[in-house]
Amino acid sequence: MGSESKVYTLAEVVPHNNVKDCWLLINGKVYDVTKFMDDHPGGDEVLLAATGKDATDDFEDVGHSSSARAMLDEYYIGDIDSASIPTKMKYTPPNQPHYNQDKTSEFVIKLLQFLVPLMILGIAVGIRFYSKQQSA
């Protein structure tokens, strides 16, 4: 790497997204991996899928060896202007009412206090009606 490195914007990096011209953005650095396309163990599709965005997570998730990381120096062409990269938005879950276990338990208890006596009454009436039918 030279002492003076070129600084690219994301807009300058994005168009380099094909087999004959492929640039990757990894850890804030720009790499021209066009010459490596045929030699990449995962195939050129993997590299092409990582173009046009910050490919740091893609690179790190694979678990590249130290020799693979050292190879990056050979393809380094400059740095990225971090202001040109959109920030990742933090996921905020939708506002939902708080689940109150006590209120749910309270509702179930009240429901049972109503239904159980009603069932007992229904069974008693049914038995009485059945016994009258049998004696007649």
Rank of each mutant, 00 (worst) to 15 (best):
M1F: 01
P86G: 07
P97R: 10
P15T: 12
S5G: 04
P94V: 11
A70P: 05
I123R: 00
Q96D: 01
L112N: 00
L48Y: 12
G78R: 05
T51A: 13
L112R: 03
S135V: 05
Y91E: 12
V7E: 05
S5E: 08
A68F: 02
K35R: 15
S82C: 02
F129A: 10
E74I: 02
P97I: 02
S66K: 15
K53A: 14
I77H: 03
S66H: 15
L72H: 03
A70H: 12
S82F: 01
G2V: 02
C22Q: 14
M89I: 02
D58M: 09
I26T: 14
S82N: 09
F129Q: 09
L48A: 09
M37D: 14
S131V: 11
Q96L: 14
G78A: 05
Q113L: 09
V125E: 00
V13N: 12
A49C: 03
T56A: 06
A49M: 13
V125P: 02
A11P: 01
D102P: 02
E4G: 03
S131D: 02
D57V: 09
G122V: 12
V19N: 05
C22S: 14
K20S: 09
G122H: 02
M71D: 13
A83Y: 05
N27H: 13
D81L: 11
P41N: 11
L10I: 08
Y91P: 11
G42L: 12
K88Q: 06
L112E: 02
P117E: 11
P15D: 15
W23E: 15
M71H: 10
Q96A: 05
V19Y: 08
T34K: 14
V7A: 01
P94H: 11
M71A: 12
K29N: 14
D73Y: 00
D58V: 08
R69N: 14
D73A: 09
Y76I: 04
K29M: 10
N27R: 15
V46D: 12
D21E: 14
F107A: 15
T9P: 10
V46P: 07
H98F: 10
I77K: 04
P94E: 13
L48H: 13
A70W: 03
S67M: 04
N18Q: 09
K6F: 00
S135T: 07
I127F: 13
E45Y: 13
D44H: 06
L111Y: 03
H40K: 08
Q134M: 01
T56S: 15
K110G: 10
L48I: 15
D79E: 11
M89L: 02
L24F: 00
A50Y: 10
L24G: 14
Q96V: 14
G28K: 10
G52Y: 13
D38Q: 08
V30P: 15
V13W: 12
S131M: 05
I127Q: 03
D38N: 08
I127T: 04
S67W: 08
G52T: 06
L118F: 04
Y75S: 05
S105I: 08
D32Y: 03
N17P: 02
K35C: 03
Y99S: 04
A50K: 11
Y91R: 11
Q133M: 04
L47F: 08
D39G: 12
G52D: 06
K53I: 10
S84L: 10
F129G: 03
D58H: 07
E4A: 09
E4P: 01
Y75W: 04
A136G: 05
S65K: 04
H40Q: 09
N100E: 13
A50F: 06
V125W: 06
N18E: 10
P93E: 15
V33A: 03
